[in-house]
Design a protein around this nucleic acid. Structure first.
Lengths: 115, 115
DNA sequence: ACGACGAGCAACCCATGGGTTGCATTTCAT
DNA sequence: ATGAAATGCAACCCATGGGTTGCTCGTCGT
């Protein structure tokens, strides 16, 4: 992959990091991972903010594709939200890419010094 | 590691994600990885913002430990900024942790279904 | 049919954040 | 010594973001 492609791919994942950058939101995705699909009401207990705040955060996470409003549970009034693990992988890959570039740079440096 | 420990560790890395969540900042760390330690002036070319903006962003990155103001170059007036790759690893580990919890949850689900 | 539950919508508050401009400071080159 | 380069500091602007409250709406249980 050409560096410019990598750079584009990295820049593109900034919104995902931004979404993960809020403590409440990060906690939400963590809970959705451990606890599986959950309703807003259930997510609100344990979060120290209002249900509305949780709702907003879910919309943000949905906006960057980290979370999805799944099919409703058997209870018609509640909606179950679930993680979209692929997006999580994307973010991880971006970090891997950056780290790899760094490692490559270190390798070049060592090669240069030992030359 | 107990789940509560993992949760704490995950929450703690929210600021790092927040720092990476800005496109300009993410680009900065990418460039610092590929290009090695660089001065503010050099980083400013190629970034479509003011030198002051770049400076501020570097402070932010420094605040979360993603970047360090290294020893000055041979030119006494310029300061070289370099990546702190350990912090990058921390962030990656946090994502791994979340992903692992998800995978474990999926494993439990499959086990339950196939039971 | 009525009350409780889950959730959406809208308005509002205010702090933070990204960005800029202007000026001061140190260091280097000539 | 004088000017240019690299940076810091400070004030300011304004948009966004996280949070709340109040109300409405659909749905379920009884």
């Amino acid at each position: 992959m050409r560096p410019s492609g990598a750079a584009r791919s990295i820049r593109a994942s900034a919104p995902v990091f931004a979404a993960l950058g809020d403590e409440t939101r990060l906690q939400l995705v963590a809970r959705l991972c451990t606890g599986g699909p959950q309703s807003i009401a259930r997510l609100t207990e344990g979060a120290d903010v209002t249900r509305q705040a949780v709702s907003k955060h879910l919309r943000v996470l949905e906006g960057v594709g980290l979370v999805r409003a799944g099919r409703e549970g058997r209870d018609g009034r509640e909606t179950l939200w679930e993680i979209e693990p692929r997006r999580l992988d994307d973010a991880r890959r971006a970090l891997d890419l950056i780290g790899a570039q760094w490692d490559a740079a270190m390798g070049r440096l060592r090669a240069f010094v030992e030359e």
